[in-house]
Simulated assay, not measured.
Amino acid sequence: MDAGFVKVLGLVFTAVSPDEVRAEWTLRPELMQPYGITHGGVHCAVVETVASTAAAVWLGDRGQVVGVSNTTDFLRASREGTITAVGTPVHRGRLQQLWEVRLTDADDRLLAKGQVRLQNILDADRLGR
């Protein structure tokens, strides 16, 4: 979990279980938008990554998951420091899952909150065909 886009984000997973995933990253200039605050796309990407990781861990070797919806609300701007993301399940069903992810700063202030709906794919060989 430390390769590809996760590595670009600088995301470090600190806890991974079927019921909760925690990750953190430190803000740096390339993650900012022109006004010097964290780019909203970074928040969305972290929400998606944490939710997808959590959903995949829960589903296990029964299949794979793919995101079908990501809604992220931005509540407070951030310019520096470490941000923590915590993902918890809202619903885990046979066909779909819904996860909520909360992003907070070092003072435990809520920066953004998102939810991701994921499809459980039990026949992963059919993906992209």
Rank of each mutant, 00 (worst) to 15 (best):
T88V: 14
V57P: 06
A56S: 15
R117L: 09
C44R: 03
P34D: 02
T88G: 07
E48T: 10
S69N: 15
G67M: 01
D2N: 15
D108I: 05
G63L: 03
L9R: 04
H91K: 10
E100H: 12
P89S: 04
E100K: 11
G93E: 00
V68T: 14
M1R: 07
T104C: 10
D123T: 07
T38F: 10
E100L: 10
T84H: 03
V46L: 10
A23E: 06
L118I: 05
A85R: 01
G93L: 00
P89A: 08
L95A: 15
H39F: 13
V8S: 12
L11M: 08
L122T: 09
D125G: 14
R126Q: 13
L95K: 13
G10N: 02
G36K: 06
R79Y: 09
G40Q: 03
S78A: 15
L103Y: 01
R76H: 07
R94L: 05
V66Q: 06
T14A: 04
F5E: 02
R129N: 13
R62P: 05
F13W: 10
L11T: 06
I121T: 05
V6I: 14
S17T: 15
A51N: 08
T26L: 04
V50R: 01
W25T: 01
T104P: 01
L111E: 00
W99E: 04
A23M: 09
D61H: 11
L127K: 09
P89L: 05
R79K: 14
L59R: 06
H39L: 09
I83Y: 00
R94V: 03
Q64D: 13
L127D: 07
S52N: 08
K7S: 12
R117G: 07
E20H: 12
H91R: 11
W25S: 03
R117A: 12
D19A: 15
V101Y: 00
D105C: 04
R62A: 13
L98S: 08
A124D: 12
I37N: 11
F74G: 00
A15Q: 15
G4R: 03
L27E: 06
R28T: 02
I121G: 02
V90C: 04
G10M: 02
